[in-house]
Nucleic acid binder design. Structure first.
Lengths: 349, 349
DNA sequence: CTTAGGCATGGAACCGTTTCCACATTTCGG
DNA sequence: CCGAAATGTGGAAACGGTTCCATGCCTAAG
């Protein structure tokens, strides 16, 4: 492998000059620079990142820590981050810190301590124990996408408000019996889900519908939404006319459940989600669109700003989700409450 | 930040001894080692990875390059790799090389050339132009999960064989009109998809059913499968009794389409997929299970083996997919071919 | 009782850059 | 025309580790 010494020799200059010519720091005569460049090209020279980092103290690498890499939101954010970093010529090191695993402890204990990065982006991280403190102790700029509220600069949508708008959308359409499907049972579960639930409750309360508010917890994915909806919709007497789902996957699960139970969407049941998942269109799902990819890119921008200037006070960027009306929601049908068809699960598809 | 010099001073030994004590290379008296360890702990010492890499030539980092990070297969493989690396204390740098993007060119041109890793895992990579040559020129051990056949060590399932078994499963159940849904139109599309199509065709030919073989191309995802199946199933006369889908997502799309068209699964239509996607169970999908997570872990093992000893000849590890029979497939129903219900799309859900 | 070899340690070179500092040469305002 | 500032270059010192080599001691084999 050709080193800068080789380049310098070939260009007949000193290492120092070669370095200046290639990095652009300091004075170099134009033709000298050209000669060095040519030599570098000829030798196929690429600076050793390790040596550069050691000398400058700057890795050109950003760490990304998230609890999952295989869920829609996280995967999309990851792609957004990756794309933005790519443009800046920065590498990305991924830390997949699954809650409650021994691996997670190692990540916080060992991996982060290596400081292989100039800055860190935490996505949807809900710190346990002393994890927040450990993040802090790393001593690198930290930006988060969802989560770590107050502790760092954050980019996210306003989950409370978004759930409110989803609920209001149904209320405006005349719905009163509106259930919230998905998310945490009790005090557990992700912050995001709890906030959305809170937004739903607030919205119901504002409309004087406290009494009718119902929360059906579920796993936050398609099968979870399906099962919860089967439960909820199976009993015709407590069946709502509208469902606010904690996210699109749950909403789609609910739609599939409704379909299986012979309940027509939207004439018998309106369903609204949050996300605008890649499947939303296929299921004609009305939803509040967020674009995780943009959130990832925004986080990169914020981080880079911090890497440049002095650390700004923690900033909170709240993006607004846009309501995308498709045909999973509609006005409440005065007839529909009489419908009793399909209360029993049919078997098979 | 405490350096090894500080540790050495505190433990009253030389840098050399401190290094040996901490890395475990070379002779160190037990009590000296203990003293150094204690000093390191007290100072909260963590070796600078850059300095270590520079001195040893070993980054403790593995690069992973894949065209997508947000598709089921890729995300699962990624988690498998991450988990395995975590156990070995290795970091993971992710390169998301989307086909045909300018970013991809930069990744191959600049990013990989930095050699920030000891080895590289390519997942489902289909090299364009001189990309294979560029990968080679990086000069680091390379293992791939799916793709790069022959060029490197590979771990994958035998797609041809797997599709064959899926097809044979339906044939054994008495099906004759079996269509293949999903994948490439013409010569384009992913290698994997082409191989599966080939396996299907071969199996049909073996059973003397060449004439009945039908391929309906589609985007390789849920909506793609849905649309293709609506087309295929819409016309009762050319409707098959069985569908082999290129993957589970497409299969599920087809099941949803069938359901929407009023076609009963499995009595009117059997559907078999490949993957055992996380949604497969919910849809009672019969499928050939592959476990991408294991493939990722296996790739890590192979790579680590290469990093240790001398490079072995390219090895091909073909995993066997297991047939998981659920209730989306069943014996062909002699009555069912007479069924004509639901040929027209109903609107709404 | 030698002496070869294992054990334990420290000094110094080295990994491949960047950058500080010193020095020389221009350029330019006054 | 002169001195200061700007420009251009090279030597050498970092950056923070690992490892080669030399040294000295101790043990055990011959």
């Amino acid at each position: 492998m050709a080193g800068i010494t080789d380049v310098a020799r070939l260009a007949a200059v000193s290492k120092a000059t070669a370095s200046r010519a290639l990095t652009g720091n300091g004075y170099v005569a134009p033709d000298t620079r050209a000669r060095v460049r040519a030599a570098a090209d000829e030798l196929g020279y690429t600076a050793s990142t390790n040596a550069v980092s050691l000398a400058t103290g700057r890795t050109s690498n950003i760490g990304v820590i998230m609890p999952y890499a295989n869920r829609w939101f996280f995967a999309e954010v990851l792609e957004g981050i990756q794309g933005a970093l790519l443009e800046h010529g920065l590498d990305l090191t991924l830390y997949d810190a699954k809650p409650g695993t021994p691996g997670r402890a190692r990540i916080f204990g060992d991996f982060l301590a290596r400081k292989r990065f100039d800055g860190l982006i935490a996505v949807g991280l809900e710190p346990e124990d002393g994890e927040l403190e450990m993040l802090r102790r790393v001593g690198r700029p930290l930006v988060s996408v969802v989560g770590l509220p107050g502790a760092t600069s954050v980019v996210a949508i306003d989950d409370d408000h978004t759930a409110r708008r989803a609920t209001e959308h149904l209320i405006t359409l005349g719905h009163r019996r509106i259930a919230f499907v998905g998310g945490p049972a009790g005090e557990h579960g992700a912050n995001v889900d709890r906030q959305r639930l809170r937004g739903y409750r607030a919205s119901m309360a504002d409309a004087g519908l406290d009494e009718l508010a119902v929360h059906v917890p579920s796993a936050v994915n398609l099968p979870g939404g399906y099962e919860a909806a089967v439960d909820l919709l199976g009993d015709a007497r407590r069946r709502p006319t509208g469902i606010v789902a904690v996210c699109d996957e749950v909403a789609i699960g609910a739609i599939i459940a409704a379909r299986r139970l012979g309940i027509q969407v939207p004439s018998d049941l309106s369903v609204v989600g949050i996300d605008d998942h890649e499947y939303a269109e296929m299921f004609s799902l009305t939803t509040l669109r967020q674009v995780p990819r943009e959130q990832g890119a925004a986080a990169v921008d914020m981080l880079l700003a911090q890497l440049g200037g002095s650390p700004p006070p923690p900033v909170e960027v709240l993006l607004t989700a846009r309501l995308i009306v498709r045909s999973s929601t509609g006005p409440v049908d005065p007839q529909s409450s009489a419908v009793t068809a399909g209360t029993r699960l049919r078997t098979g598809w």
